[in-house]
Design a protein around this nucleic acid. Sequence first.
DNA 1: CTGTTAGCGCGTTCAA
DNA 2: TTGAACGCGCTAACAG
Lengths: 336, 336
Amino acid sequence: MRVRLRDLAERLGLSVMAVSKALRDAPDIGAATKAKVQAEARRMGYWPNEAARSLRVKQSGWVGFILSDLASEEGALISGGLTEAAQEAGIALLVGLARNGKEEAEQVRAMIGRGAEAIFLLPRISTEHRSAALEVANKSNCPMIFLKRYPADVGLGSGRVSWVVRDVKGAAEMILDHLYDLGHRNVAYLGGHSAARSHALHMQSVVEGAERRGMTLMGGALMVGLEPEDAEGEMRKIFGKKDPPTATICGTDTLAQGVFRACFRAGVEVPKRMSVTGVGNGELSRHGMVPLTTVGFPSLGRAGFALWKKMRDGEGGVQPEVVQGELIVRESTGKA
Amino acid sequence: MRVRLRDLAERLGLSVMAVSKALRDAPDIGAATKAKVQAEARRMGYWPNEAARSLRVKQSGWVGFILSDLASEEGALISGGLTEAAQEAGIALLVGLARNGKEEAEQVRAMIGRGAEAIFLLPRISTEHRSAALEVANKSNCPMIFLKRYPADVGLGSGRVSWVVRDVKGAAEMILDHLYDLGHRNVAYLGGHSAARSHALHMQSVVEGAERRGMTLMGGALMVGLEPEDAEGEMRKIFGKKDPPTATICGTDTLAQGVFRACFRAGVEVPKRMSVTGVGNGELSRHGMVPLTTVGFPSLGRAGFALWKKMRDGEGGVQPEVVQGELIVRESTGKA
DNA sequence: CTGTTAGCGCGTTCAA
DNA sequence: TTGAACGCGCTAACAG
């Protein structure tokens, strides 16, 4: 059996309370007693029973994280930062998978039942207007932080909801500045799908930013899809036209791989005759065919956790946060 | 405040116990009472307090998963399967990060304190002889399942430890068969680092398998490192030699990307003049420059969870499991 | 400085 | 078929 406070107390001839306090370094226990207690605790391998502690102090000491796919790079990156931050704060992290809005709500309910002190949610898509998960959380007034995407019906009213998103517009500006400085004036844009708010915003930012800088956007902005093949096909068409662009701005790192494929098949060297950029700074951008110039967003998870802590400690930190990206220049971009 | 059993009981004019039993569908409560109780519970939004339940029944309903980096593809893939399997079984998953043996042991201790019913560990490297984490777990006889790698000092003796690994040798055989059938007789091998047991085993399997099939291993088997650059440099040397191989077998998908780079720079078409294979079936293999022929290992996490369930239910499932890989043929391999 | 009392919310045991 | 008493391991509040 596991060692309990009582076992220690009996062994030491003290009361359970004295031992409990000594272990928590309470101010009203003698130094000598503390030392003795702590030594014996280590010797006997005592470790507190968190279930009992939680029951008593009404704090579980853990938060929940719900997402659709841990195996995706997106999920992995965010959960990595979140786990790190939580661990540093001595808070445990419980992970739940949910593939749709209904499952999200179920997970939220289950986690609240288990005593989550907060719930972090990386929603599948941002197109849904209302979030069942949010309703459930509100009902039990469990704090909820949306990561990367958030539903349209979210509101700050309750003071227990907030979110952390990427500065997609800023990312577009960084890329445009970078390409402009390299002398590119004629560029192409290949984005994901226009139904996703962040993709739409990125595209719009590129369109406006290009115009402001006097850059030509070859064939307008194109939403091609999410797979490399989608970008590859579109690039072939672009190569067919006269006066092709000298740079291609992609909405994701994955799409950039498709551009690489098209370039190599067409014998167009990167970056000599075509510069390429992505967004995400994922594995593909580091290890893919050509190390990719892209924009990375460090640890949305970490930012989200910090936000919750402020919220909890009543430092008024309910304002949503927009995380700045960071331009990472690699070999896929060069002079026009 | 949260609704408790007592609140329900008072509202319904019943005893706390009657309500508790009714909700758990106990056999000794009348159907009419059950229906009434369950309806009221739903109406009031009752959800059991798991901390109290755990304390009483001495089962937390969750397991722990410890790894060094959730953001890595390796960690993400395994945790994905593990989370799925746990969720299907109604067990929650607590995640902990540990960058070295000491932190692993600390995490194990913390998780046991929180009441983990089992601990799944993806160790950082398999070269360490003894595992502090294992010692801690053994002391509190918490079941422990190693995933993908396991320490040399592990033993099945206690009946509370086991592990799940990949069939690395089988993977090598699959790749060799595939290449042999395509007519390749002269191949190169680029592996990771020989200090890792799985890498060493993979290399050895390729060496032996090639010999058995009468295939020539150009320049012997080379352990180059883990980054694409490592493979790229080595390939350049290989291209410099006369009678170069028609296929390159890589120890990881990442190394294969380096081979792609070298091929394209040297004007060697893939797969026309060079076939390339990897191991892992990660994002790079799907979305990289050339869709890569590789060996995937579905859900070590899932297999590990299943193993623990057998262990727990006393079905004697303590025997370590070797998960078979699956050859995934994509565009990077063709006729010699 | 140390100990006593009184639960936290649930489930097991046994009596009604 | 239902309920009362008790305890899981821990700690807040108050005495001593």
